[in-house]
Amino acid sequence: MREIAHLVLVLGLICSLSAGALAYVRTSLAPRIEMQEDFYVRGPALERLFQQPAKELLTEKLTVPVGDQDYPVFYLRQDGEVTGLAVEAAGKGGYSGDIVIMIGLDPRSDRVLGVEIVSHSETPGLGAKVELASFRQQWTGLILDQPLALAGDGGGIDAITGATFSSRAMVEGSNQVVDLLRDHRQEILSLIEQRSADGATSGGES
C-alpha cells in the first residue's frame, strides 16, 4: 500500500510539473504563434480568396464571440460597402482533431468565393486530401443560406473516398459559418462599420 502511494505520488508530481511547464510555454508563445499563423497561413489563404495583397487584408481583422467560441473574421471593404468576408471556423469531428477552415464569401449575395484550410492534422494521403482544390472547389459558388451536407447525408457535397470523417468535419465547419451569418450578420457588419469609422477619424491605425 505504501509502495503504491509512493509510485502515485512521484508520477503525479512529475506530471503536474510537466503540465505547469507546458501551460507556461503555451501561454507565453501563443501570441507569437498566432502572428506566424496569420503571416504564413491565413495571409496566403486570404490572398487566394480575395486576390489582394495579404498585408492589407490581415489588418482588417475582428473577432466575433459566439457562446464560448471566438470566430476570427477578415473583411474587404470598397466604397463604404463590405464586399468580402472571410470567416474562420474549426470544423469538429475530423479523424484526428479539428479542421480549421476559412470561408470567403460575398456578404451581399452570400455566394462563397472559396474555402481554404488553415490547419488540420488528418492522415496524409487520406483525410489530408481535404486540401485538394478539386475537393474544395465544391464550395465555390454555393449560397450559404442553408446548412450544407455530404451527399451520403442527403446533401450536395461529395465526400472524399476513405475520408468521410474529414469531409464531414469540413461540412460541420461550414455550417458553423452558415449559423454565424444567419444569427450575427448585422452584428458583424456594424462591427466593421464601427472599425472603419474609428480608422477614418484617427487617420488609420497601423
Binding site: L11, I14, S18, R32
Partner: peptide, 29 residues
Amino acid sequence: PDKVRIASYIVVIATLVVIVELAMKAFFF
C-alpha cells in the same frame, strides 16, 4: 521508482517535445 520509470521518462520526453513543437511554430513556422 523503478516500477514507473518508463512512464516517467515518457512524461518528461513528451513535455520537452511539445515545448519544441510550440517553439518551432513560434520561430520556424
